[in-house]
Each structure stands twice: as C-alpha cells, then as structure tokens.
C-alpha cells in the first residue's frame, strides 16, 4: 500500500513539473527583456490545463510554409503519428535488449583476456555520436544504390508510407552498445559471487551456470540501470525522426514548438514508458522480496 502511495505521488509530481515547465518559455522571454511575466506565465498554465482537460478536441498549431497555420487535431490524426513513433521506439528497445543479452552471453564464454579487449572496443563505440551513425547509415544506403541500383531501404519518408527497419537499426545501435556494456559489468560482478564458485565446484558447465544462475540475478540489476539508456534513446528518437523525415510526433515539433505541443509530446512518451518501468520495478521488487533472487 505504501508503495502504491509513493507511486501516485511520484506520478503527480512528475505531471505537475512537466506542466510548470511547459510555460517556462514565457518566463524566459520576459527575462530577456528584463521583466518578470508572472501573470502571463500563470495564464499560459491555465490555458494549458484547460486544453488538456477536454483532450478530445485538443489540437495543435502546425505551420505550413511561412506564416500559414493549420490546426491539427490530436485525436485521431496526431495520435497516429505518436503511435508510429512509439512503435519505432519499442521495436528498437526490444531489438537492443535481445542483441545485447546475446552478445553478453557470447562474450562471457570467452577468456578473460579477449574479453577485456572486446570491452575496450565497445567503450569507444559507445561514445560515437548518434548523428554520425544515422548519417553513415543513410550514406551507405545511397552509395549502395548508386553502385548497384538496389534500394536497400528508403532513407526518407515521402507521403503516407512507413519505413521501419533502417530507422529501427539506427536507433538500436547505440542503446544496444550501452546495454551490452551495462550487462557485461553486472554479469561480471555476479560471476565473482560465491554461489557461482559453488556451482562451478559442483561441476556445472559454464554456459549452464551463466544461463540458469547468473542471468536471473543480473537481469534485475540491468533493468534498474537501463533507465539511462531509455532516456538517451528518447533523445535519439527525436533526432532520428528529423533526419529520416519520419512523420512521427517529432515532425511537428521541428516546425513549431508550442507549449501545448510540448505537453502532448512529452506526455505521450512519458506515460507509456513510466507505466512500463513502474510495472517492471513492481515485478522485480516483489520477486526479490520473495527471496527468489538476491541482488
């Protein structure tokens, strides 16, 4: 019960802070002119709250060309773009997790020396900026097309069609490397635990111990630390959509970022991810307190 109360407070405080920030540009604009625009700020907040309240006919401004404004309703039109963005995000997340874990298994079976080399390589790969990876991916597709005439994937979305695998691939690479490094660290820490020694001395094979014992315990720690990766991925998604001209939610943002649009965007990502993580935390903590696995 206490946990649930805490969760509600956490949720409400997060919502309120997001709302407070949505009006902040007003304050900053005023600050530049040397005046405090408190009243305007509060008015903006009131306006935002009112528009969120009747969210069924919520709409955002969208600029076509210069100066022309069109109203885009959130339901159902914007909602479609949001779901496309979320699809990309979760597809990439799933792919990143699976590949990172498989990679960890394989490296854990290697010898100590080659392991440290692999780790150093991945350390540097991790620091590659996302923009370069997307640029290189797009260039590769262009070069392949010029050389062979085969279009591996579209590099920009035109019209109503949707592209999936190239953006997902680009979005996946860096989180995968981060998760891989993270799970390598936890797996190695777990490997030094006593119960692993015991299992080894009982004559179980390396792969068996890895899969049945270490994995179960390490995955909890990996989950709790993966929030940073999630955070990083959200920013990446944003840039990815811009660079691929993907008609996701970010597409509207690059044209004009109003307070309402900011609220809609942030909430549409915050709600599902927050729920997902809360569920995961609840599940793992319950499992831990049952004594199923020691952290």
């Amino acid at each position: 019960m206490k946990g649930f109360f805490k969760w509600v407070v956490q949720f409400v405080v997060a919502l309120i802070s997001i709302l407070l920030i949505s009006g902040a540009p007003q304050l900053i604009t005023g600050f530049q002119k040397g005046e405090l625009l408190w009243e305007e700020y509060i008015e903006t907040l009131q306006f935002h709250m009112k528009s969120l309240w009747d969210f069924r006919d919520l709409s955002v401004d969208y600029y076509i060309g210069r100066g022309e404004v069109r109203q885009v309703p959130v339901f159902p039109q914007l909602f479609e773009n949001i779901s496309y963005s979320l699809q990309l995000l979760f597809l990439a997340l799933a792919a990143a997790i699976i590949i990172a874990l498989i990679g960890t298994f394989i490296t854990m079976l290697l010898s100590e020396k080659s392991r440290s080399r692999v780790k150093l390589i991945f350390y540097f790969l991790e620091s590659f900026p996302d923009i370069l990876i997307i640029l290189l991916a797009q260039l590769t597709v262009v070069v392949i097309f010029q050389q062979t005439g085969v279009l591996v994937s579209k590099i920009a979305v035109i019209g109503d069609d949707k592209i999936y695998w190239l953006p997902v691939l680009c979005l996946m690479i860096l989180p995968m490397i981060q998760l891989y490094r993270l799970s390598m660290l936890t797996f190695e820490a777990e490997e030094r635990q006593m119960y692993v020694e015991l299992a080894k001395s009982l004559g179980f094979g390396k792969a068996f111990i890895l899969f049945l014992h270490i994995f179960r315990n390490a995955i909890i720690s990996v989950f709790f630390q993966s929030k940073k990766t999630m955070w990083f991925m959200l920013s990446n998604l944003f840039i990815l959509e811009l660079m691929f001209h993907i008609p996701g939610i970010m597409y509207y943002m690059s044209e004009n970022l109003s307070g309402i649009l900011f609220l809609v965007t942030v909430l549409s990502f915050f709600l599902p991810v927050f729920l997902l993580y809360s569920l995961g935390e609840w599940y793992f903590i319950r499992r831990m307190s049952r004594g199923g696995a020691a952290l």
């Binding site: 956490q10 949720f11 405080v13 997060a14 997001i18 929030k227 940073k228 999630m230 955070w231 959200l234 920013s235 998604l237 944003f238 840039i239 943002m253 970022l257 900011f262 965007t265 942030v266 990502f269 915050f270 991810v273 927050f274 993580y277």
Partner: peptide, 10 residues
C-alpha cells in the same frame, strides 16, 4: 526519477 522518461533534447 521520472526525468528519465522525458527526452532531454525536447
């Protein structure tokens, strides 16, 4: 903690 679910770039 919930800051982790809001993209920083935005």
């Amino acid at each position: 903690d919930p800051i982790h679910y809001v993209p920083m770039t935005i």
